[in-house]
Amino acid sequence: MAAEQQAPSILGFPHRPEWGATAHRRAVAGHLRRCRNHAGLGTGRAAECIGASPATISRMETGLASLKTADVSHLLDEYSVRDPAERQRIALLVHEAAQPEVWQPYAHGAPDSLRPLLAMEPAARRIISYEPQLVPGWLQTEEYARIVIRATHPTLPAGEIEERVRLRCARIDMLRRETDPPTLLAVMDSEVFRRQVGTPGVMYRQIQYLLTLLDELRYRIRLHIAPLSVGAAGAIGHPIVHLRFFSPDYLPDMVYLEQYEGALYREKPSDSERYQAVLNHLCGVATPADQTASLLQEALATWR
Protein backbone atom coordinates (compact mmCIF):
# COMPACT_ATOMS: atom_id res chain seq x y z
CA MET A 1 0.00 0.00 0.00
CA ALA A 2 2.87 2.38 0.81
CA ALA A 3 4.30 1.97 -2.68
CA GLU A 4 0.89 2.81 -4.19
CA GLN A 5 0.74 6.05 -2.19
CA GLN A 6 4.24 7.17 -3.13
CA ALA A 7 4.24 10.40 -5.12
CA PRO A 8 5.08 9.96 -8.81
CA SER A 9 8.56 11.03 -9.88
CA ILE A 10 9.89 12.35 -13.19
CA LEU A 11 13.55 11.90 -12.24
CA GLY A 12 13.73 8.64 -14.17
CA PHE A 13 13.27 10.56 -17.43
CA PRO A 14 16.48 12.40 -18.34
CA HIS A 15 16.86 15.73 -20.09
CA ARG A 16 18.07 14.60 -23.53
CA PRO A 17 17.77 17.24 -26.27
CA GLU A 18 18.71 14.72 -28.96
CA TRP A 19 15.49 12.83 -28.27
CA GLY A 20 13.41 15.70 -29.65
CA ALA A 21 10.63 17.93 -28.37
CA THR A 22 7.78 15.44 -28.63
CA ALA A 23 9.40 12.83 -26.40
CA HIS A 24 9.91 15.44 -23.66
CA ARG A 25 6.37 16.80 -24.04
CA ARG A 26 4.85 13.33 -23.83
CA ALA A 27 6.91 12.45 -20.77
CA VAL A 28 5.73 15.58 -18.96
CA ALA A 29 2.16 15.01 -20.12
CA GLY A 30 1.98 11.56 -18.59
CA HIS A 31 3.65 12.81 -15.41
CA LEU A 32 1.12 15.63 -15.00
CA ARG A 33 -1.70 13.10 -15.27
CA ARG A 34 -0.10 10.88 -12.63
CA CYS A 35 0.46 13.85 -10.31
CA ARG A 36 -3.16 14.97 -10.68
CA ASN A 37 -4.44 11.48 -9.97
CA HIS A 38 -2.14 11.18 -6.96
CA ALA A 39 -3.52 14.47 -5.65
CA GLY A 40 -7.06 13.13 -6.09
CA LEU A 41 -8.16 15.97 -8.34
CA GLY A 42 -10.37 15.90 -11.41
CA THR A 43 -9.67 17.64 -14.69
CA GLY A 44 -12.23 20.31 -13.82
CA ARG A 45 -10.36 21.44 -10.71
CA ALA A 46 -7.03 21.36 -12.56
CA ALA A 47 -8.57 23.45 -15.36
CA GLU A 48 -9.80 26.07 -12.91
CA CYS A 49 -6.27 26.36 -11.53
CA ILE A 50 -4.93 27.67 -14.85
CA GLY A 51 -8.11 29.26 -16.22
CA ALA A 52 -8.58 26.66 -18.92
CA SER A 53 -11.13 24.00 -19.86
CA PRO A 54 -11.08 20.31 -18.84
CA ALA A 55 -10.51 19.52 -22.52
CA THR A 56 -7.29 21.56 -22.41
CA ILE A 57 -6.10 19.56 -19.40
CA SER A 58 -6.86 16.34 -21.26
CA ARG A 59 -4.88 17.55 -24.25
CA MET A 60 -1.98 18.56 -22.02
CA GLU A 61 -2.02 15.15 -20.35
CA THR A 62 -1.90 13.29 -23.65
CA GLY A 63 0.87 15.39 -25.19
CA LEU A 64 -1.43 16.98 -27.77
CA ALA A 65 -1.18 20.52 -26.42
CA SER A 66 1.84 22.74 -25.94
CA LEU A 67 3.06 23.16 -22.37
CA LYS A 68 3.35 26.66 -20.94
CA THR A 69 5.87 27.03 -18.14
CA ALA A 70 3.54 29.11 -15.98
CA ASP A 71 0.63 26.68 -16.41
CA VAL A 72 2.78 23.69 -15.50
CA SER A 73 4.14 25.52 -12.45
CA HIS A 74 0.62 26.36 -11.24
CA LEU A 75 -0.49 22.78 -11.73
CA LEU A 76 2.48 21.46 -9.76
CA ASP A 77 1.58 23.84 -6.94
CA GLU A 78 -1.99 22.55 -7.01
CA TYR A 79 -0.76 18.95 -7.01
CA SER A 80 1.55 19.66 -4.02
CA VAL A 81 4.74 18.85 -5.93
CA ARG A 82 7.32 20.60 -3.75
CA ASP A 83 10.57 18.69 -4.30
CA PRO A 84 13.09 21.11 -5.91
CA ALA A 85 14.77 18.30 -7.88
CA GLU A 86 11.43 17.21 -9.35
CA ARG A 87 10.46 20.72 -10.29
CA GLN A 88 13.85 21.50 -11.79
CA ARG A 89 13.70 18.37 -13.95
CA ILE A 90 10.18 19.20 -15.08
CA ALA A 91 11.25 22.75 -15.98
CA LEU A 92 14.07 21.36 -18.14
CA LEU A 93 11.72 18.96 -19.88
CA VAL A 94 9.12 21.66 -20.49
CA HIS A 95 11.84 23.87 -21.99
CA GLU A 96 12.89 21.05 -24.31
CA ALA A 97 9.28 20.35 -25.25
CA ALA A 98 9.04 23.90 -26.60
CA GLN A 99 11.92 23.47 -29.04
CA PRO A 100 11.33 22.95 -32.79
CA GLU A 101 10.35 19.44 -33.82
CA VAL A 102 13.04 17.40 -35.56
CA TRP A 103 11.09 17.52 -38.84
CA GLN A 104 10.50 21.30 -38.84
CA PRO A 105 13.60 22.15 -40.92
CA TYR A 106 11.93 20.02 -43.61
CA ALA A 107 8.35 21.11 -42.88
CA HIS A 108 7.31 21.18 -46.55
CA GLY A 109 8.72 17.68 -47.05
CA ALA A 110 7.29 16.06 -43.92
CA PRO A 111 3.84 14.58 -44.61
CA ASP A 112 1.38 14.95 -41.73
CA SER A 113 0.98 11.19 -41.53
CA LEU A 114 4.72 10.68 -41.01
CA ARG A 115 5.34 13.44 -38.48
CA PRO A 116 4.52 11.42 -35.33
CA LEU A 117 7.08 8.79 -36.37
CA LEU A 118 9.70 11.40 -37.29
CA ALA A 119 9.14 13.16 -33.97
CA MET A 120 9.54 10.04 -31.83
CA GLU A 121 12.16 7.90 -33.56
CA PRO A 122 15.14 9.91 -32.19
CA ALA A 123 14.07 8.84 -28.68
CA ALA A 124 13.94 5.16 -29.64
CA ARG A 125 16.29 2.64 -28.11
CA ARG A 126 15.41 0.09 -30.77
CA ILE A 127 13.60 0.31 -34.09
CA ILE A 128 12.30 -2.84 -35.80
CA SER A 129 11.17 -2.39 -39.37
CA TYR A 130 9.70 -4.62 -42.07
CA GLU A 131 9.69 -3.42 -45.67
CA PRO A 132 8.13 -5.71 -48.30
CA GLN A 133 8.60 -3.53 -51.39
CA LEU A 134 11.54 -1.16 -51.06
CA VAL A 135 14.76 -0.43 -49.21
CA PRO A 136 13.72 1.09 -45.84
CA GLY A 137 13.66 4.88 -45.91
CA TRP A 138 16.51 5.33 -43.42
CA LEU A 139 18.81 3.32 -45.71
CA GLN A 140 17.99 4.81 -49.10
CA THR A 141 20.41 6.77 -51.26
CA GLU A 142 19.32 10.17 -52.50
CA GLU A 143 18.77 9.01 -56.07
CA TYR A 144 16.83 5.90 -55.00
CA ALA A 145 14.68 7.99 -52.63
CA ARG A 146 14.02 10.61 -55.33
CA ILE A 147 12.74 8.01 -57.78
CA VAL A 148 10.54 6.33 -55.17
CA ILE A 149 9.02 9.60 -53.95
CA ARG A 150 8.39 10.85 -57.47
CA ALA A 151 6.72 7.57 -58.42
CA THR A 152 4.51 7.63 -55.32
CA HIS A 153 3.64 11.34 -55.59
CA PRO A 154 3.89 12.23 -59.30
CA THR A 155 2.04 15.55 -58.89
CA LEU A 156 4.31 16.99 -56.18
CA PRO A 157 6.35 20.06 -57.15
CA ALA A 158 10.02 19.34 -57.74
CA GLY A 159 11.03 21.46 -54.75
CA GLU A 160 8.84 19.46 -52.36
CA ILE A 161 10.20 16.20 -53.73
CA GLU A 162 13.73 17.41 -53.06
CA GLU A 163 12.80 18.40 -49.52
CA ARG A 164 11.34 14.95 -48.91
CA VAL A 165 14.52 13.41 -50.26
CA ARG A 166 16.68 15.49 -47.92
CA LEU A 167 14.50 14.59 -44.95
CA ARG A 168 14.51 10.89 -45.76
CA CYS A 169 18.26 10.74 -46.15
CA ALA A 170 18.91 12.80 -43.03
CA ARG A 171 17.15 10.28 -40.78
CA ILE A 172 20.19 7.97 -40.80
CA ASP A 173 22.11 10.61 -38.83
CA MET A 174 20.39 9.63 -35.58
CA LEU A 175 22.16 6.26 -35.85
CA ARG A 176 25.49 8.09 -36.07
CA ARG A 177 25.15 10.18 -32.93
CA GLU A 178 27.63 9.45 -30.17
CA THR A 179 25.20 9.32 -27.24
CA ASP A 180 22.84 6.34 -27.10
CA PRO A 181 21.93 6.07 -30.78
CA PRO A 182 18.95 3.87 -31.67
CA THR A 183 19.57 0.38 -32.96
CA LEU A 184 17.84 -0.39 -36.27
CA LEU A 185 16.77 -3.97 -36.93
CA ALA A 186 15.39 -4.06 -40.47
CA VAL A 187 13.84 -6.91 -42.44
CA MET A 188 13.55 -6.60 -46.23
CA ASP A 189 11.92 -8.90 -48.72
CA SER A 190 14.48 -10.46 -51.09
CA GLU A 191 12.42 -9.19 -54.03
CA VAL A 192 13.47 -5.65 -53.13
CA PHE A 193 16.80 -6.37 -54.84
CA ARG A 194 15.12 -7.69 -57.97
CA ARG A 195 12.68 -4.81 -58.32
CA GLN A 196 14.42 -2.23 -60.48
CA VAL A 197 14.12 1.30 -59.15
CA GLY A 198 15.53 3.64 -61.77
CA THR A 199 18.47 2.35 -63.77
CA PRO A 200 20.71 -0.63 -62.99
CA GLY A 201 23.27 1.93 -61.83
CA VAL A 202 20.84 3.28 -59.24
CA MET A 203 20.31 -0.24 -57.91
CA TYR A 204 24.05 -0.95 -57.90
CA ARG A 205 24.84 2.19 -55.92
CA GLN A 206 21.97 1.54 -53.51
CA ILE A 207 23.26 -1.92 -52.67
CA GLN A 208 26.79 -0.57 -52.35
CA TYR A 209 25.46 2.00 -49.89
CA LEU A 210 23.82 -0.73 -47.81
CA LEU A 211 27.15 -2.55 -47.62
CA THR A 212 28.86 0.67 -46.57
CA LEU A 213 26.30 1.29 -43.83
CA LEU A 214 26.60 -2.26 -42.53
CA ASP A 215 30.32 -1.71 -42.18
CA GLU A 216 30.14 1.83 -40.80
CA LEU A 217 27.28 1.17 -38.37
CA ARG A 218 27.85 -2.51 -37.75
CA TYR A 219 26.72 -2.37 -34.12
CA ARG A 220 23.76 -0.13 -34.86
CA ILE A 221 22.16 -1.77 -37.89
CA ARG A 222 21.09 -5.39 -38.24
CA LEU A 223 19.68 -6.17 -41.66
CA HIS A 224 17.78 -9.36 -42.43
CA ILE A 225 16.63 -10.48 -45.87
CA ALA A 226 13.45 -12.55 -46.06
CA PRO A 227 13.46 -14.97 -49.03
CA LEU A 228 10.29 -16.02 -50.81
CA SER A 229 10.52 -19.34 -48.97
CA VAL A 230 9.28 -17.68 -45.77
CA GLY A 231 5.84 -17.95 -47.36
CA ALA A 232 2.91 -16.46 -45.49
CA ALA A 233 5.16 -14.86 -42.86
CA GLY A 234 6.33 -12.39 -45.49
CA ALA A 235 2.94 -11.79 -47.08
CA ILE A 236 2.33 -8.57 -45.16
CA GLY A 237 1.41 -5.97 -47.72
CA HIS A 238 2.60 -2.81 -45.97
CA PRO A 239 5.62 -1.55 -44.02
CA ILE A 240 5.62 -1.88 -40.22
CA VAL A 241 7.81 0.03 -37.77
CA HIS A 242 7.96 -0.78 -34.06
CA LEU A 243 9.63 1.72 -31.70
CA ARG A 244 10.79 0.91 -28.19
CA PHE A 245 12.15 3.82 -26.16
CA PHE A 246 14.98 4.41 -23.72
CA SER A 247 12.45 5.37 -21.03
CA PRO A 248 9.57 2.88 -21.45
CA ASP A 249 8.03 3.84 -18.10
CA TYR A 250 7.32 7.27 -19.58
CA LEU A 251 7.04 6.52 -23.32
CA PRO A 252 5.03 3.45 -24.39
CA ASP A 253 5.99 1.48 -27.48
CA MET A 254 4.76 2.92 -30.77
CA VAL A 255 3.77 1.01 -33.91
CA TYR A 256 3.63 2.73 -37.30
CA LEU A 257 1.64 1.07 -40.09
CA GLU A 258 2.21 2.70 -43.45
CA GLN A 259 -0.73 3.01 -45.83
CA TYR A 260 -0.76 4.30 -49.39
CA GLU A 261 -2.73 7.38 -48.34
CA GLY A 262 -1.48 7.99 -44.83
CA ALA A 263 -0.57 5.89 -41.81
CA LEU A 264 -1.97 4.29 -38.69
CA TYR A 265 -0.38 4.43 -35.24
CA ARG A 266 -0.88 1.92 -32.44
CA GLU A 267 0.25 2.39 -28.83
CA LYS A 268 -1.95 0.06 -26.80
CA PRO A 269 0.23 -2.62 -25.17
CA SER A 270 -1.82 -5.41 -26.76
CA ASP A 271 -1.29 -3.94 -30.25
CA SER A 272 2.39 -3.31 -29.62
CA GLU A 273 2.94 -6.88 -28.43
CA ARG A 274 1.06 -8.30 -31.39
CA TYR A 275 3.10 -6.42 -33.98
CA GLN A 276 6.33 -7.08 -32.16
CA ALA A 277 5.52 -10.80 -32.30
CA VAL A 278 4.95 -10.51 -36.06
CA LEU A 279 8.27 -8.72 -36.54
CA ASN A 280 10.15 -11.10 -34.27
CA HIS A 281 8.80 -14.02 -36.30
CA LEU A 282 9.94 -12.38 -39.53
CA CYS A 283 13.41 -11.87 -38.09
CA GLY A 284 13.46 -15.51 -37.06
CA VAL A 285 12.52 -16.93 -40.46
CA ALA A 286 14.60 -14.47 -42.51
CA THR A 287 18.24 -15.06 -43.34
CA PRO A 288 20.50 -14.38 -40.32
CA ALA A 289 21.99 -10.89 -40.24
CA ASP A 290 25.55 -12.21 -40.41
CA GLN A 291 24.80 -13.56 -43.91
CA THR A 292 23.34 -10.31 -45.23
CA ALA A 293 26.61 -8.87 -46.56
CA SER A 294 27.18 -11.99 -48.68
CA LEU A 295 23.63 -11.81 -50.04
CA LEU A 296 24.09 -8.14 -50.88
CA GLN A 297 27.32 -8.93 -52.72
CA GLU A 298 25.42 -11.51 -54.78
CA ALA A 299 22.68 -8.97 -55.52
CA LEU A 300 25.31 -6.40 -56.44
CA ALA A 301 26.68 -8.70 -59.11
CA THR A 302 23.30 -8.88 -60.86
CA TRP A 303 23.27 -5.12 -61.44
CA ARG A 304 26.79 -4.69 -62.85
Rank of each mutant, 00 (worst) to 15 (best):
I236V: 15
H74R: 12
S272Y: 01
G137V: 10
G284W: 00
S247T: 15
C35A: 14
V28Y: 10
K68F: 06
A7T: 11
A65C: 03
T199R: 09
E78R: 15
E131D: 09
P8I: 00
G201I: 00
G30T: 03
R59S: 06
V202R: 04
A55T: 14
P84F: 09
E267L: 11
A7G: 08
A293L: 04
A301Q: 14
L167W: 09
P200M: 08
P116M: 10
H153G: 03
V197F: 00
L156K: 02
T56G: 00
P111S: 08
R16V: 15
C49H: 10
A2L: 14
F246G: 08
A151W: 07
A299P: 02
L41S: 04
A39I: 03
Q99V: 06
M174F: 01
L93I: 07
L156M: 11
E216I: 05
P227A: 13
E61P: 02
Y106H: 12
Y204K: 07
A65H: 12
H153E: 14
G30Q: 04
P154L: 01
D215W: 05
L251N: 11
K68N: 12
A286M: 02
Y260L: 08
A85L: 08
D189I: 02
A145I: 06
A47M: 08
L156S: 10
E191H: 13
L64T: 10
A27N: 08
L282N: 04
P239N: 09
Y256V: 13
T199G: 05
T155W: 02
T22Q: 15
G234D: 05
I57Q: 00
D173G: 03
S294N: 10
R36D: 10
V94H: 05
D215V: 03
E48M: 09
I57D: 01
W138T: 10
E261S: 13
V192N: 05
G237P: 00
Y79D: 03
E131R: 07
E261Y: 12
L167Y: 09
Y204G: 01
V230A: 02
L210I: 09
H108V: 15
S80Y: 12
E162K: 11
A158M: 08
D290F: 10
T69A: 15
F193N: 01
E160R: 12
L41V: 13
G63Q: 08
R195M: 09
V255Q: 03
D112Y: 11
R176D: 03
L279Q: 07
A170R: 10
E216F: 01
D180W: 05
D83E: 15
Y204P: 00
Q140V: 09
